[in-house]
Design a binder for these strands. Structure first.
Lengths: 336, 336
DNA sequence: CTGTTAGCGCGTTCAC
DNA sequence: GTGAACGCGCTAACAG
């Protein structure tokens, strides 16, 4: 691997002249520059990243932390972030926290090694301890959820879609279509994600004076199979409802399958609306109505926020919230 | 950010003693070690990655290049690779080549900056130029396809599933189920990926003395919508077949949708078998028969191969091939 | 066992 | 305009 010294030796210039020529800063005659650039090209010179980093403390890398790499929810987000970051020469380091708080702390702790310039952090559950760990990295960070620090002050930015609203939209859609017995298929109720979505569901019902029936509130794990199991069990126990709000597409798909295995036709016997609006919605028969969480936009904006801090040196905190949008397909039937 | 010098100053030891204490190499009294480790802890010391890299030329990072982050084919592969790499303290840098040869070259060229220790490279189309670029990085690399270098010699490892065999299995399954007019729904015929799969299809037909009908060979782009359009067009032109081999699940889903939009029932009017066996197969009605390409295993083994080179200093070339496996579901009907 | 010293490759003063 | 020299933080060889 060629260094600036090799180029210096070959051209007869000094290493610092080579350095100046190469990155265009500082004085350097056009003639010298010409020669140096050419021989750098010839020698296949590529600057040693580690050396640059050590000097500049700039890595041109962003860590993107996500809980689950198999969850399609994040694909569009990664895609969006990667695309906009790439435009400014940044690349993405994948941090894969496997839905585990320990893992999250571990990843965040390692970040103190200064091997990335910023962080996009996604989690199902933001606890004060997690937020502390995020702040402790000292890195520009944007989190992809809304989180109000207990102290009220914080340095990280938030880019997110309004989660309660998403579930509210889904539930309200069911209500407007004439449903009143509407099940809620969520994840772990301890986690912020499910709590928020449940809150939106609850509020929608409340607004229409429909009491929440605890028997209709199911908790699975955001997987297709989990959704299937939970809903099949629900049906087997003789519970009934005319519609269900599934907290993600995967569970929606599982739920739909459970219905069909149970002899129920969607949407004639039961309506389903899911959240996330991924490709899965197109695969089912009927195609699944779902609430678009604008993951791609979240990824893009999150990356934009980071670049703004990094490149433009923005020093104040900013939030950005998106309103999810309902995408109607064929899995909801109008009653009455 | 605390450095070993800060710790040295605070404890009264020299920087090198601190370094030795910290990474357990070289002599250091237990007493000194004790003090040093404690104050390092107190000061929240984390070694500066760039400095270590510069010295050791070890980054503990692997670049994983994939053509398309939205293609579910790669999810399991990333997952598998991430999981096994993580066990040895490596993390994944995502290289996102967007299905474009230029982008591939660009990424590979940047790799000369020594900011990763190895590469897992996935592409739809390995050309000699691409292979040259891979070799030029000088990095341990495993590619996730089979590729026979023109010269016959190469330094990179291959971990892959037998692509022709996958299509062969799919087509043979159709034939064994009594089908003889079997369509092939592939991607760009110029790309290795489609060429290989077509070859398997062709061979299966040949083995059963079924002539290949060019009218039944369709080319789309590996997307759901592309598959839909191509197959709908096919049906609209009045072509007919009793079964189709779709080169990936996404196109299989699109194809199935095209059939149903055209009033054809799957599997009664037409059978479909796809390749990839992703979650999408569970979403369709009926669930889609597909050939499992063992992407997870490929990811794991590719990572293992790399670790083997990196950690165990393996210096000889190795290949590993998996045989895909048919997963029967409900989209194929037995004829006659 | 510990401290001194000399780089790793690059960017950046500062004299010339 | 150009080159010499220093330092980023850490590791490793050597001397003590």
């Amino acid at each position: 691997m060629a260094t600036i010294y090799d180029i210096a030796k070959k051209t007869g210039f000094s290493a610092s002249t080579v350095a100046r020529a190469l990155n265009g800063k500082g004085y350097c005659s056009a003639a010298a520059k010409e020669i140096i650039l050419r021989t750098a090209e010839e020698m296949g010179y590529v600057p040693h990243e580690a050396a640059k980093m050590l000097k500049s403390n700039i890595t041109k890398k962003i860590m993107m932390c996500i809980p689950d790499i198999m969850n399609p929810y994040y694909f569009a987000m990664i895609h969006g972030a990667a695309t906009t970051l790439e435009r400014s020469g940044y690349s993405i380091l994948l941090g894969y926290t496997m839905h585990s708080p320990e893992k999250e702390f571990e990843v965040l702790d390692s970040l103190k090694g200064h091997f990335v310039d910023g962080v996009i952090f996604g989690s199902f559950d933001y606890t004060p301890a997690l937020i502390d760990a995020i702040e402790a990295t000292g890195l520009p960070t944007v989190i992809t959820s809304y989180y109000q620090s207990p102290s009220g002050f914080h340095g990280y930015d938030c880019v997110y879609v309004d989660q309660p609203q998403a579930a509210w939209i889904a539930a309200t859609h069911c209500i407007e279509m004439g449903h009143r017995r509407i099940a809620f298929l969520g994840g772990n109720p301890k986690e912020q994600n499910t709590r928020e979505r449940y809150e939106g569901y609850r509020r929608a019902l409340e607004e229409h004076h429909i009491p929440v029936d605890k028997a209709l509130v199911l908790h699975a794990d955001f997987t297709r199979d989990g959704g299937y199991q939970a809903f099949y069990e629900f049906l087997r126990h003789g519970e009934d409802c005319t519609a269900v709000v599934a907290c993600n597409d995967l569970m929606g798909v599982g739920c739909m399958k459970a219905c069909s295995d149970f002899g129920l036709n969607v949407p004639n016997d039961i309506s389903i609306v899911a959240l996330d609006n991924t490709e899965y919605c197109f695969c089912t028969t009927p195609a699944m109505t779902s609430v678009d969480m604008l993951q791609g936009q979240v990824g893009e904006e999150a990356a934009g926020f980071l670049l703004d801090r990094l490149l433009e040196k923005r020093a104040y905190q900013k939030n950005m919230a998106f309103s999810p949008v309902l995408v109607e397909r064929g899995s909801v039937k109008k009653l009455g």
